[in-house]
Nucleic acid binder design. Structure first.
Length: 427
DNA sequence: TCTGGGGTCCTAGGACCC
DNA sequence: TCTGGGGTCCTAGGACCC
């Protein structure tokens, strides 16, 4: 029997902040999404105050808000801490699949089942010691059950953070019977309603359902969930190192704006970020989509959500071509009289740069020019890697622009910036 | 005043072909 | 006057994930 583990960092973003600021311990702490919009990570204490995942910050009742510490998100810090956690996991098994910034699946093929829980306790202890981050471990024979086990490990103190669920054990049945389907990986509200219509409410009901019937009413994904609940490992994770099929960069603006110059800057920045991401994964795009959105929550304002797909003159990763194309698309879509809230670009129809055949109709004389452009782009990327993003950019954003992010409560990038290192006071 | 960002997979339906 | 059937490819939209 081959065992899969799921390691999940507890309240990850909050835990990262607490590593560097112990005053946050035992306090209700929340981390906000971009633009300080919604609560996307919560400490146990803030959960206990009834603040739900995804709550807009301004909707938290005042008397609750006063007790909370709300921080802007510091993705540079979380990304670096995540990398450190994964590095420690690799000391405990060679088979690590990074699933998200705070979760990894571990393969324990060939490990002795009897010693596995102890091994994982040691893993928890070591991750905590090396990084300061608390983690929980769920163990079973499928990823879906490992997720279930992880949830139990977190919730039930007797497990001390490590829970092994054998698919056919009585205890597993009892746990699944008490678990609503919405707690399962891959089942959200919409699907839960439709499952309810078939009389399927608990995770156990779903496990006992006829896989073919589930497939008929839903799809192959849901059928696989049934098998997974029975302990059969049948969900392949997509290879995270695989290049993306689409590359999106977009952001809500700091405040609403109808100013075309503001929008041009925003689109320019997103287009050149998109080009950078293309180069990093070694792809070129054949087309791109540019879009704008007004604020759908403001029913008192006129709404306009245009998007335009435009082909690129040739498959490219050149920031200047991509920016120029995006700006032309913006000009074509822009209408006066609307207040826009968000804008962005999506790079489409990507191809692997190395294997792409050069267009037969390409002007052969452009080869030298293309080589020059390549060198320019790689120098820009190198400078930005070494001196921080936006050290060099296509055009310089104005200060105080409407689209710039709000992040009033961001903590220092303790681990990645020399000038933001934590300071230890010795007495 | 203030409501995230980035991605995947699947299915249905239309266009098109022979 | 009669007007098939099977296949592929593409796109839009839905649902889900963290």
């Amino acid at each position: 029997m081959s065992i899969i583990g799921l390691v999940d960092c507890n309240n990850f973003y909050v835990s990262c902040e607490r590593v560097f600021d112990p005053r946050l311990e035992e306090r209700p702490v929340g981390v906000l999404s971009n633009n300080d919009g919604c609560v996307v990570a919560r400490s146990q204490e803030i959960k206990d105050l009834g603040v739900a995942m995804g709550t807009p910050a301004f909707q938290i009742p005042h008397h609750v808000r006063r007790q909370c510490i709300l921080l802007s998100s510091n993705y540079t810090l979380y990304g670096d801490m995540s990398r450190r956690v994964v590095a420690t996991l690799r000391d405990f098994t060679p088979d690590v699949e990074v699933y998200s910034i705070d979760e990894s699946f571990l393969g324990f093929d060939g490990f002795d089942l009897d010693g596995l829980e102890d091994h994982c306790q040691k893993l928890r202890y070591t991750v905590r010691r090396n990084t300061g981050i608390p983690v929980s471990v769920g163990l079973s024979t499928s990823r879906t059950l490992a997720k279930v086990a992880n949830r139990i490990a977190k919730k039930q103190a007797v497990y001390e953070g490590v829970c092994l669920l054998e698919p056919d054990a009585t205890v597993t049945r009892h746990l699944l019977e008490r678990m609503p389907v919405t707690d399962l990986w891959g089942v959200a509200a919409r699907t839960a309603i439709r499952l309810g219509e078939l009389g399927i409410r608990s995770a156990w009901d779903l496990r006992q359902a006829n896989p073919k019937r589930i497939r008929k009413h839903f799809n192959v994904v849901m059928e696989r969930t049934v098998w997974e609940l029975r302990g059969v490992d049948c969900i392949e994770l997509d290879d995270m190192s695989k290049p993306k099929d689409n590359i999106m960069t977009s952001r809500s603006f700091g405040r609403l704006t109808g100013d075309k110059a503001d929008l041009r800057e925003a689109i320019r920045v997103h287009a050149s970020r998109g080009a950078e991401k293309l180069r990093r994964q070694g792809s070129v795009a054949r087309a791109m989509m540019v879009f704008l959105k007004t604020n759908r929550h403001r029913e008192d304002l006129p709404q306009y959500n245009p998007s335009l797909v435009v082909p690129l003159p040739r498959p490219t990763d050149d920031s200047r071509i991509i920016v120029a194309t995006a700006l032309r698309a913006l000009d074509a879509m822009y209408r006066r009289g609307y207040l826009y809230m968000k804008g962005g670009v999506m790079m489409l129809d990507l191809a692997d740069k190395a294997t792409l055949q050069h267009d037969l109709f390409d002007d052969p004389q452009s080869d030298a020019e293309r080589a020059r452009n390549e060198r320019l782009m790689s120098v820009i990327d190198k400078i930005n890697r070494e001196h921080g993003r936006d050290a060099v950019s296509v055009g310089k954003p104005r200060a105080g622009n409407a689209w710039a992010l709000r992040c009033q409560h961001r903590t220092p990038r303790y681990t990645t910036r020399w000038d933001e290192l934590p300071i230890a006071m010795l007495r």
